[in-house]
Amino acid sequence: MNELDKIPVRQEISVAQGSVKRSNPLANVFDELVRFCQSRSMFMLHYCTGCGAIELPPAMTSRFDMERLGIQPMVTPRQADILLITGYVSVKTLKRIILTYEQMPAPKYVIGICSCTVNGGMYWQSYATAKVLKEYLPVDIYIAGCMPRPEAVISGLRDLMGDIKSGSASNWKRYFQNYDHYLGNQQKLFDEDWQTPTDIIAEAEHYGLITDQTLGEHTALLQKHQQPLEALEFSLGEKREKIRGENQ
């Protein structure tokens, strides 16, 4: 099991990027507004992996009513801002969680609910369970407990809300910046030909989030096994050689 501090996270980069001030004051106001709206409108994808999911309905319904905070459940990763992982994560489930996470549009946040996501909880000895979620995905908030009450969930969400508003919740960038590390952990767990149909490296390029930690030996391994994933381009003529490879 990895030590938390062994994860080569370069905290300063993300913090610096998150709170970057632009010279134009209007742009600043605009950024503030956007961040405010982002914090007040959080769509969450509750990936109900374990028993913690049972605490979400009370948090959403009449007793605690998340909607008054602008938090709504969504069912596809495309629409979601927050990935809620509510309990233990088996190896098989983790693959799906990673795919789902990668399909979410940035900025995106991960919340680990229950002890199981922190350190495996009562499944700490299980051979089939991924114990520390953080090794595979950049987790923004852990809400510990077995299980945490709705109040705790809402409190955690409010903490995240604050982080978003202040611009410090930018852990999602770390996934791109340190992709090689996360991929390495994933490959260790799954296999060396592990891949998802999403193209993280291209996305990192798209956002300019490529660092020297993004690419490495693990991504090299990935690229060896990966099916090509360029988007389908229009074609009018003969120049088909590039995409034809996709079939093999």
Binding site: Q38, P105, A106
Partner: peptide
């Protein structure tokens, strides 16, 4: 506003 300001537009 949040939706329009998403960084990733898939």
């Amino acid at each position: 506003i949040k939706l329009y300001s998403k960084d990733t537009q898939i």
